[in-house]
Amino acid sequence: MMGLTPQETKSLGLGALLIALAALLPLFDDGFYLSISVNIVLYAALCTSWALFSGPTHYVSLATAAFYGLGTYSVGLGIELLPYPLLLLIAAAIGAVMAGLVGAATLRISGVYFVIFTFGLAELVRQLVTWTQTKFSTAMGLYVFTEMTESHIYWMLLALTGAVFLTSFLIARSRLGFAMTVIGNDETVARHVGIDTARSKIILFMISGAFIAIAGAITAPRYIYIEPPSAFNPMISFLVVIMALLGGTKRLWGPLVGVIPFTIVMDFISSNFPNHTMIVVGLAFLAIVYLIPHGVTGLLENAQARWTKRSAPAAVAEEKPA
């Protein structure tokens, strides 16, 4: 909880190095590989932000598309009026406020209500935005013209991913992180030692929502023309859940293990078999539940535990793999 252990210093250094290496990519390619890398980094940012909240609470949030769309729209509406960095901050604030409202309505009760509420949230926000647009303006969408290139977007998303990682790391060492650990162990005990459990969850959800909204804001210039159906595409929420759970949410870097392969697979499927994307998504969900409930990182950890057990039979009994 206090100074950095050598292990932590090493992880931080390694993380910084990997991000620096990844940042070099646009120098080598600015076509297909950059384009798919933007997707990968986008989903990396979204999935780690998602796991920031859903990892410790086990609440499946489907609000990602709503936050993302709000971020995109803040840029779409404000690009002619305000400087871009300010818009990113505004997007973050809007995301946090939205998350706060959703959290306040649902996180005080039980987890199921939260899932149901977020299930239709993107659709709700999409309808509201569409309604407002048709009511108060003639155009259905918004144009976003900027000087931003694919490389800029890539770098910004990479920086955002780094920021999410750093934030998770800092939260884990904070009162909030400790509170989440206690809640994860026993919510009744948590309340009786003095943790405002609902408030802790809401704060965490707001941080997560703010990051997702920033990701949407950063990606906005990529669309050029923003329409409600693309900005609030509910598929984004589901893909984020799949990728994060595929990787595993116990470790900070777990979601990344799911993001990279699945983004590539989805890219391949949607360009070659566009009618089959739904089926692939469905199968992915079933695979997560039945085959790899703890994600790939969970599998790796179990394998590692088995390996250490075999090589050191005298060691203390490991936790039983579920």
């Binding site: 089959h276 994307t277 739904m278 089926i279 079933l286 539940v289």
Partner: peptide, 24 residues
């Protein structure tokens, strides 16, 4: 709680599978 999370994810799977097949 675990059954809730598992059944939610599993029925998402069914949701997309059925939707995908019907679109097909």
């Amino acid at each position: 709680g675990q059954l809730e999370v598992d059944s939610i994810l599993a029925t998402f799977g069914l949701l997309f599978l059925m939707q995908g097949l019907m679109i097909l």
